[in-house]
Computed example of a mutant assay.
Amino acid sequence: MSDWHDDELERMQEALRPLRYQSRRAELEARLEPRGPVRMPAWKHYAIAAAVLVSVGVSAAAYVYQHSPGWAIASTEGEVSLNWGSRFTRVLRSGEGLETAAGQVQLRVGSIGALTIGKNSRIRLVEASPNQQTVSLEHGEIRASILAPPRQFQVLTPAAKAVDLGCAYTLKVDRDGNGHLEVTMGWVSFEDRGRQSFIPVGAACRTRKGLGPGTPYYLDAEPGLINALEQVDFSAQPAERLAARKTLLPLARRRDALTLWHLLSRGTPDERGMTVDRLTALAPLPPGVTREAILRLEPDALQRLWDGMNLGPGAWWKLWGFTPPPAPVVRR
């Protein structure tokens, strides 16, 4: 019995022998022996260097973009199209534009005011520097509220340039490039190729692409005067312009001397004569100013006529360092 058990035990030990504990120290020590330096393939070096350069370039570009001059986007409402940079930083940079569909945008014009972009409008920021803020309105509507020295804020349109003289106004431009401006505070100068229209609070002015600014008029003027003025400003037919002038002159009030002053340089000598006569019927000429000097469009006479008829607040213009309106440029 004992011999059988001994034989069985030996067989079991033999069967389990492969599973016995074996030290692997020698094998592990061999694996941990120092080896020679591992060489990285050359292409990996180039790949890493390229990645570093790209990262540095992107970071530099982002820094320059974020610190370049621009107007802060104060708020957006509805559908507005902005590029990725403006959408991310909430700043519109020089050279960038935006377009509204059913929405609107309010921009901060540096530290001098605000600009609201209405629906279905397209603008582009032209310049945003400490001394000059300029935006281009291709079409649509903007509302500006600015408190700054004259000429620091300007809006370019296809027909004329609106130059801020410290004011608030609404400017609309249709898809043909024609515009309409209404001033709610201060004064605006509408300019194109030397021709200027000076528009005070409560007044408006139209523009036509290729013809420039029309003649300013007060919004409470006689409707017949306002309608006739459009023919005077933009009709291609001399007979129509003459007939329209004859229609509007009797409708002019003393307050409408602003309109008549601008009309002096817009028309034929005969049309200028009838305009001077209507002006003198509304108010006498200032001392030292003659009818003949006005007919000759002498700058000093026109300037003294402007001041003598109290057409504009020249005092605060001078306070800002801005010269009151010069002699109009004749262009027909």
Score class of each variant (00 low, 15 high):
R17F: 03
I73L: 15
T89P: 04
K44A: 09
I73P: 01
P37Q: 01
V91G: 03
L16S: 09
A26E: 10
L82T: 05
Y63V: 09
A49E: 07
Q22L: 11
S68K: 12
A50I: 08
A26H: 08
L32W: 11
P37M: 02
A50S: 12
S86V: 08
L32C: 06
G36D: 15
H45S: 13
G57K: 12
V80W: 00
S86Y: 06
E79L: 10
A51H: 08
V54H: 01
F88K: 11
A49Y: 08
L82E: 06
W43I: 07
R87P: 01
A49V: 12
P34H: 01
E77H: 11
L19E: 12
A60N: 09
V38W: 08
M40L: 10
M40N: 09
G57C: 15
L53D: 14
H67M: 01
T76Y: 01
F88H: 10
G36M: 15
Y63E: 14
V91F: 01
A30Y: 02
V56Y: 00
P34R: 01
A51T: 04
W71C: 07
G70P: 01
Q66M: 12
A61W: 12
P69Y: 10
V54A: 04
S75E: 15
I73A: 08
V91K: 06
W43F: 10
P34A: 00
V64Y: 10
R35W: 08
P69G: 06
Y63K: 11
L82C: 02
M40C: 04
A26W: 02
S86G: 04
N83D: 09
R25H: 05
A30D: 15
A51I: 02
A61T: 12
L53F: 03
A62Q: 14
L32S: 08
E14R: 08
R31A: 07
L16G: 00
P34S: 01
S81I: 14
A61E: 07
T89H: 10
A50W: 02
S55V: 02
W84M: 06
V58Q: 04
W43R: 15
Q66W: 01
Y21W: 09
A61G: 06
V38E: 12
S68H: 13
Y65W: 05
S68N: 12
G85L: 03
S68E: 15
Q22V: 14
W84T: 10
E77T: 14
V52I: 15
M40F: 11
L16Q: 03
